[in-house]
Design a protein around this nucleic acid. Sequence first.
DNA 1: GATGCGTGGTT
DNA 2: TAACCAAGCAT
Length: 299
Amino acid sequence: MRATAEALPEGIDDLITWYQDNARDLPWRRAEFHERYGAWGVLVSEFMLQQTPVNRVIPHLAAWLDRWATPAALAAASPAEVVHQWASLGYPRRALWLHGAASRIVAEHEGQTPRDVDALLALPGIGDYTARAVAVFAFGDHHPVVDTNTRRVLARAMHGQPQPAPPSRRDLDDMRALLPEDVGDSAIVNAAMMELGATLCTARAPRCASCPLAAQCAWRAAGYPAGEDRRRKQAAYEGSDRQTRGAILRALRGAVDHALPAELTIADWPRPEQRDRAIDSLIADGLIEADEGMLRLPH
DNA sequence: GATGCGTGGTT
DNA sequence: TAACCAAGCAT
């Protein structure tokens, strides 16, 4: 059996078996979760999982859905409540986008989370990954779901490269080519590729000895060539505007009455002009508001 | 296509 | 310990 892009489909049955035997027991994979929260629960979980690790999402997701179990419930909340509940999950604009998505679902979809990929893509904060993840994992439909884990597995097993190229539409075509016709199997393959990338085919130290696709992996067959590293370097966080924004928002979340004068949000910040710039950008993003010289979460 | 956007754990 | 990594999205 040759290990090439053409050979990869031959490993799909083994991949399905591997997933059925080894998938992690995550909350959003449980039948009770779907019975209780439906597609809305899946949508909320996918928002939280955008760039935030699984283990940090789990407790926050439970608390969030306990408070707001439906789109209508979330839409009725204020932005301040939403940003506060988001807590330290990071990228708090996601909280506003999720809130906006809930409002749009109430206004345009009679409170029912849409099943159609284009309808999902039209909602704020939902892109190629999240739209298809909801359509597949909540509704069981037949679409390619491609996240960073899947792209890494495809780069290695299909293309013989250690790291994926920047995201592109070709990723969807690559994944579509691997999906079985059977709808149920295709959903499992989507989940299994993500699971493989998250647990075995990891960025740093892949555990190829346990991999169900090892016999078909083009990267392994080629002797693990180094390839070209086209990963984007992450900007330094220490001293950044992002750190400054985070500190201001943390202060406002923690304030007893959620309102503080600008100077006291982050007192003695080494660069006052950076603090002021961060405040302006937070206001522009709708994450905070100024009210008679006081800053607070947006009402 | 490149960049900005949080937070915390791991190496 | 600085750098890397983590179920992306909008602009």
